[in-house]
Design a protein around this nucleic acid. Structure first.
Lengths: 135, 135
DNA sequence: CTAAATTCGGATAAAAATAATCGTATTTTT
DNA sequence: AAAAATACGATTATTTTTATCCGAATTTAG
């Protein structure tokens, strides 16, 4: 329930991989194989990141993906926004609060929103580069 | 994906309600009606909280639930532990890391665990009493 | 003693979200 | 022209979350 989706998890790994091999284009196939990730799923996900402007792609043979920004300029929040559309701890967190039948009696909305912000801050302040082991 | 479950959400409301009516036992029925929550679901949830020691129950007519601790002594983390069993942002967060086939090549476990702890801290430092509107 | 109001417990079902797969089209290089 | 890629849409499968149902046990009140 407080959990990173596989999309985000795979995307973190993929971006790190691409970053380590930034001198060339990286194919979905190669990334999937090297990281043992499901190809089709990863492939979709990379396309999404491309559409959202985090990656550029090259079509055809010799095609693949490359980074647009450095991974220390991409935050986990960026990824979640690009991939997940919603990272709201309660449904009413992304609207005016009139989403549920309990609006009138809801006693917790505003403090929950505060909690939301604290969590957002964590993801906003963590870059993909931060998420590497320093072995 | 980064979302409080309905269990936790309802539990927060229910505990606050019980706290406001702490002079008497509160039935699941009453709480469900007053807060517009689904009875059966809430009922189960209260039983769980009882088993986990956050509430005491009284059987039979005139039965119901009462708080064991004040709501400023119960954290969101307590609730999540009691209700959800898992609040790990990745699967391997609650074991030795040997859960997936990528263990050998996993380059992100330790920093992800750090992220985990930051999130845990938020829930650890937020009590049910904190989550009330100051209207 | 009986009826009613309640918690308790197990089982199951329904719905939603997440993850994965498939098929085909398009682009580019050789 | 063939091969190696990405692009895109549709669909399926799996898992998790949410909700419901039923019958049993307990306690109070009449």
């Amino acid at each position: 329930m407080i959990k990173l989706s596989k999309k985000v998890e795979y995307a973190i790994m993929a971006l790190q991989y691409i970053s380590e091999n930034s001198s060339k284009t990286n194919t979905a196939k190669e990334i999937a194989e090297k990281l043992s990730l499901p190809y089709d799923f990863l492939s979709k996900l990379l396309q999404t990141l491309m559409k959202k402007g985090l990656l550029v792609s090259q079509l055809g043979v010799k095609g693949g993906y490359m980074l647009v920004k450095q991974i220390n300029e991409i935050t986990v929040e960026d990824l979640m926004n690009a991939l997940d559309e919603r990272s709201r701890i309660v449904e009413c967190a992304d609207n005016d609060g009139s989403c549920c039948s309990r609006t009138e009696i809801c006693d917790i909305r505003s403090p929950i929103m505060n909690l939301q912000e604290q969590i957002n801050n964590i993801f906003k302040n963590t870059t993909i580069a931060n998420l590497k082991n320093n072995i």
